[in-house]
Amino acid sequence: MNHNRNSRVYLIKAIGLWFAIVIITIIVISPSVWLFLTSLKHPMEIFRWPPTIFPQQLSFEGYKSIFHGYDSRRGSYVPIMGNLYNSLVVGLISSIFSLIIGSMAAYVFARGKIPYGKSIFLTIMVLRTIPLIALAVPLYKLIGYFGLINTLTGLTITHLVITFPIVMFVMYNYFSLFPSEIEDAAQIDGCGPFGIFLKIIVPISAPSLASSLILAFVFSYNEFLFALTLLSDNNRMTLPVGLASTISTHGINWDLLSSAGTIAVIPCVFIALYVQRYLLKGLWSGAIK
């Protein structure tokens, strides 16, 4: 009897759990699924009321215009693929640059190789919380001084503001948990500090270096404000500003925009899937306890 009651309570709990899981899953994925389904609809079908859930007639008009770079129905250029390319280039260069400078410094700071390493690290973490708009005006002037406004070079430099602290955060935490015996052994074998770092630390830390690079890249890829203030030429824009400017010039073309949004989000999906497992493990390591 008692056993029976227990199993019923267990069943109710299990149903409740699954109910909650299904509801939350629907809420989490439906906005993105809805955008994707919209991107497959014919422009005439998009604004129908009541809205159709699944496209009645598959249409790839939006994707076609994006890949051709030209919207034949409206007779206008669509620089989305170029914008995507710009985003990838800016993100890669600024995060690689941050990785080289940041990982070396993170190693030196985390290992207490120079005085005040920890304070400098904490200062960077505080500076990171400053709103970007507070940095945007002076950086705009600085970039302008070198004649780099409306260039991807200029934007790449400002994106160091975003990528550098992320590399610093990930690599500092990693190096502060790293055992030092290997380095001691190498030191006895006559390696200099830079030699130890390059020949021993870098190969061992490759997975962490890769994760910090990927994270930094995503934050640069997603960045909007600096790109908005620095870039004015459609062909030089990164994807977020490119999307925003598609709108203001010809009203909102939801067929085009939903396709572009879907394309823009695909790299994020793969990266998020890869990075979340790493983040779960390493996030709070050493922070509590």
């Binding site: 899953t25 989490v28 993105s32 890829y221 909007f224 939801w254 925009l257 823009a264 994020c268 998020a272």
Partner: peptide, 22 residues
């Protein structure tokens, strides 16, 4: 389920804004 739930955290904010505007 975990992979699905955590997915949006790396989405481009501009795209998210358009998703919801739509």
């Amino acid at each position: 389920v975990r992979a699905l739930w955590l997915l949006p955290f790396m989405f481009t904010p501009v795209v998210v804004a358009y998703q919801w505007r739509w």
